[in-house]
Structures are given as structure tokens and as C-alpha cells.
Simulated scan of single mutants.
Amino acid sequence: MSVLPLVFTSGWASGINAYAVILLLGVFGATGLTDEVPEALQRTDVLVVAGVLFLCEAVADKIPYVDSAWDTVHTVVRPVAGAVVAALLAGESGSLPELVAGAVGGSTALMSHLVKAGTRMAVNTSPEPFSNIGVSLAEDLGVAGIITFAVFHPVAAAVVAAVLLLLGLVTVVFLSSRVRRFLRRRAQRREERRPAVEGAPRPPG
């Protein structure tokens, strides 16, 4: 059977939490729940690193503004992780060229990452921190649920991931005014932190 549905779903999930995807797939493979996971993701060192980074993300992702800074750093990390995981899955199954799988996984991860980052910017316009925690928990549970579902029902999980991606894109468009407000606030804070040099006396010369 083609591994494309699992590639697509893992790409979507990697755009939200790449470390959780690597950790879950590695555990499922190491425990024998699926034969689709390559040995590279089942290695103990990979699982340990993914677990530590997952815990770091679990904390940073629930703190207002820290979550957006974390997302900025991971604009490259998540798509690359999605592409690598997809290519490894394709190489394990042999039913899909690794280059094609990497392109699908990476591009899907990039789109879902942009949805996540945009949604978080909108949420950060709210003065209270509880919305960040709620959204982060929903994302963590969603990734865990969709990856688990994909291991046993890859086609159905891919359909769910596609619907969630589409809904996410529509939501970000709907929240675009809040995103722009967040960006204005961040630019204003940078200006306030920047030392005033216009009124500083010129050095004698």
C-alpha cells in the first residue's frame, strides 16, 4: 500500500510539533505497533533528543509571546523535519520516491506551521495567558491523536489532516486583523527598547 497518506499526515503534524511526531513514530516502531517506521527514528538517541525537545516545546508553547518567538525559530526546523520524516517513511516502504515524499512532507509541514504561527499571533493579542495554554494543549492532543490514527488508518487520517489544514488556513485569513495587530505591537516594543540616539549629544570632533 502507498505510504503517501502517512507522509501527508506526518507532514501536517510536523508543522505543528515536529518533535512529537518523531517521538511518537519512533515509539510506535520500537514497540512493534507498526512496520512502517524506519530504524533511524527508532534509535534510542533519537528518541531521547526528541523527548527532551518535546518537553522544551511543551513549556515554551504555552507562554504568550515566547510561543511566537519559538515558532519563528522553527520556521525552518519544522518543514525540514517534515521532509526528512517523509523521506524516511518512503524509503522504508519503497512505494513512493523519497524526493517526492520529502517535497510533500516538507510543503505540508510549512503550510501547517504557518497556520500555527499565524493563529498564535492572533491569540497573543488577548491579554490573558489561558488561551495560549488551551490552544497549545489542543495542538498537542491533536498531533498525538492524528499520528496514532494514521498508524492504523492512514487514509482516513490523511483526510482529517487535509480538512484541518484547510480549516486552519481559513481561520488565519479570518484572524488576519489580529495578526497585523500583534505585529504592530511587537514592532512598537522593539522601538521602545531601542536606545534613543536622535537626541544624544554628538561627540567632540
Rank of each mutant, 00 (worst) to 15 (best):
V100H: 07
Q42C: 15
A187D: 10
L164A: 14
D45A: 09
M111W: 14
C56F: 15
L166M: 14
H113K: 07
I16L: 11
V151D: 05
V59L: 12
G26R: 03
R181P: 03
R194T: 15
R178V: 04
P5C: 06
L89A: 08
S126C: 13
A158V: 14
T34I: 10
Q188L: 10
R194H: 11
V3P: 04
N132M: 06
A90L: 15
L175V: 08
P64C: 09
G51A: 02
R181T: 04
L164F: 07
L167S: 02
P201I: 13
S136Q: 05
F149C: 03
F8W: 08
A86L: 11
V84N: 06
A157M: 07
V173G: 08
T9D: 09
W12Y: 11
I16M: 10
R193P: 02
N17A: 12
A13I: 07
T72I: 15
V27E: 05
L4A: 14
S10C: 13
E198N: 13
A13L: 04
G26K: 00
T108F: 09
F54L: 14
L141T: 07
G168W: 02
F28Y: 04
T9F: 01
L25A: 01
A81F: 15
A138K: 12
V173D: 11
L53Q: 00
I147P: 01
F54A: 06
E57L: 13
